[in-house]
Amino acid sequence: MKKEDLLNAIGNIQDDLILSAIDDSKESRPKRIRRGLMVTLAAALVLTLTVGVGAASGIFRGLEDPFAPAFRNDGSAPPLDRELVEKLGHPVGVSATDQGVTVTVDSVLRDRYTCTVVTSIAMPGIEKQEIDYEAMEMSGALDGFSSGGGYTTNFTPGDDTLQIIRVWESEEPFPEGEATMTIDTLVFNRYRFLREKKVEGKWELKFDISYEDLSTELPAGQVLSVEGIETTLDEITISPLSMMVKHTAEPGEADLEQVIETEPYERTLKNHLEELACVITKKDGTQFFCPGTFEEKETHMQSVHGDSKQQGEKLKCWYVLRFDQMLPLDEIQSITIEGVEIPLA
């Protein structure tokens, strides 16, 4: 058998398999992206910035509406906890219109390490489009935070409005204050491949991202063993939206080289260190998992983002788990990381 035979044989698999892979990629799933790919226009075009009256007058589409898209929408998640929503987020309602396209920031929902912005884009015929959310950039209070993700949803087909949920995650706490979200050129690409369609314009939206910090830090300092490598938990911070775990691995000189320098295909140990096995157990027995593999059918996580950097012979690691629903802290029994159970006081 030749490798070409395999490639050809894969080419003839059943139609359902082929189409399923495309459908899956277009689902409203959280996605991690890297910033720095913003499309920058040489010439700034006319910008009409309109601060929506909604925020001032209290007119919104219902309290839950602006926030609901920030979580999964398959109907299985519990209703949003209004008290928590009011503490962790704001309805925004700020709009900007350019080139016949209106961009509205519907809501912001955040905690110490994550910030989720629900944005609507209204344009005739937008319904079946996919927007390249990498072209959306935040600055101001969020300037300098380089990681995050985004995904596109459309809950009301036919209304010429598409929603983009843009998520920022960071190793360092996000500041408060006014943030500016700038969109330079909307890039539409239904299949995310080529043949892009662009609406060249500029939309700049300023809004407040202050919030009440409901995060709790759990006792840290535990020493864990990950595939024979010692790592010390530096910080475990949990909020109703997410959990941050920071730890320092000390693999020793030889192992560190192996962890960092090994060929990409073999870097499972590094992956493991960047995403430690973790289970959050609620008092009712429900468990939330860090999806280190796809084996767990229901992880209750929207995304996991881990990273690491070398400091001498140590590897500083962190990862943030975003929940697929609000998780009131008083409902949590314990958190177990790599088999070490830490009760939530």
Binding site: L7, I10, G11, I13, L17, I18, S20, A21, I22, S25, R29, P30, K31, R32, I33, R34, G149, R192, P264, R267, K270, N271, E274, S303, V304, H305, G306
Partner: peptide, 22 residues
Amino acid sequence: IRRYWYLSPIRELAKEYGMSQS
């Protein structure tokens, strides 16, 4: 299937599935 039928680059898959390239 995305990798070996559609020949999607690893980078693109990482982005779409919210996972690191590694």
